[in-house]
Design a protein around this nucleic acid. Structure first.
Length: 297
DNA sequence: TTCCAGGGGTAGA
DNA sequence: TCTACCCATGGA
């Protein structure tokens, strides 16, 4: 018999679950499931103890998020601690955005950020999951990205205790299937070998992406480390760093080029360097300013 | 059929 | 460091 408990996650400043869900497309990528009408964010989660739980996030008040945790049996203390840590990480609840908000208030394209308690980017609980998702956004359409991630979860993820929803597969689960199966059933295209190799290297202990969550190394070192992973280039590395709370690099893609061209160069074609420097006035917040820049597309 | 999408790897200069 | 070419996939 599954059981559900409720915990409250408080922040030092205001937080908006709605803004988090709209911070980018991640809330529409499995195993996230955003119900905008009800204001509920669902997710199935595979813990280190190998138990699988289901989470439901809901806005409690302006500086707190409520989480309903459903598990097969009562949560152990370590599992409970892990869930709290993962939930806080996913919602960036410990981010200090005061300085960024101050910069936003003087820019009409960004004044909405503090006004809407925005500025947090929804992220996955593991860097592995975010890395795979970033790889799945490259050189493809958004609908295909959603399909790739959904199939990855459906084929290799472990099911939750009450619904048909599954968790994001662990590196071990991805590493142990053969390339052919990954290619045929998940249809990642040429990304198959990238995702497979990343999972294998993590499982073998050759790469430790999760250490980046708590690392104090300079961002440039992480950037270089990410670029050494096959399938991760400048765009994916910059996006991953933003998800890690490091906003030094802008992920230059077709969208970024379009924005910078229209807003800063009167519609003229722009180089990648021009895109990188377009938000330099925001200093260490430049990629976050780019991320939330509101303009007439 | 051809193009291309929230790029990236590789070879060659 | 830069450029050209190729890479699976699937919708337009």
């Amino acid at each position: 018999m599954a059981e559900t408990i409720r915990i409250l996650l408080r922040t030092r400043s205001s937080v908006s679950l709605h803004a988090l869900a709209h911070s980018h497309g991640w809330s529409r990528l499995a195993p996230f499931d955003w119900n905008g009408d009800a204001g509920l964010l669902h997710r199935t989660e595979h813990l280190r103890s190998d138990s699988v739980i289901e989470l439901c996030f809901k806005q409690a008040d302006k500086d707190a998020i409520e989480v309903h945790i459903t598990s097969e049996t009562a949560l152990s203390d370590p599992d409970g601690d892990e869930v709290q840590a993962r939930a806080r990480w996913m919602l960036c609840l410990d981010a200090d955005l005061d300085e960024f908000y101050e910069l936003c208030r003087s820019d009409p394209h960004l004044a909405h950020v503090p006004a809407e308690q925005s500025g947090r980017i929804l992220r996955s609980p593991t860097v592995f999951e975010d890395a795979v998702k970033c790889i799945c956004t490259t050189n493809t359409t958004w609908s295909q990205t959603m399909g790739m991630v959904r199939r990855l979860v459906e084929v290799l993820g472990k099911p939750g205790p009450i619904s048909a929803q599954r968790a994001f597969p662990t590196p071990q689960a991805v590493a142990t299937v053969d390339d052919d199966m990954l290619q045929r059933q998940v249809r990642l295209g040429y990304r198959t070998s990238y995702v497979h190799e990343l999972a294998r290297r993590i499982t073998a202990g050759e790469v430790d992406l999760e250490a980046m969550q708590r690392s104090s190394q300079p961002t440039s070192e992480h950037y270089a480390q990410l670029l050494r992973i096959k399938g991760i280039g400048p765009y994916a590395a910059a996006s991953l760093l933003a998800l890690l709370g490091r906003y030094d690099y802008i992920g230059v893609d077709t969208w970024a080029r379009k924005l910078v061209s229209k807003e800063f160069y009167d519609g003229e074609p722009v180089s990648d360097k021009q895109v990188q420097s377009a938000f330099d006035s925001f200093g260490r917040w430049r990629a976050l300013a780019y991320w939330f820049y509101r303009w007439d597309d």
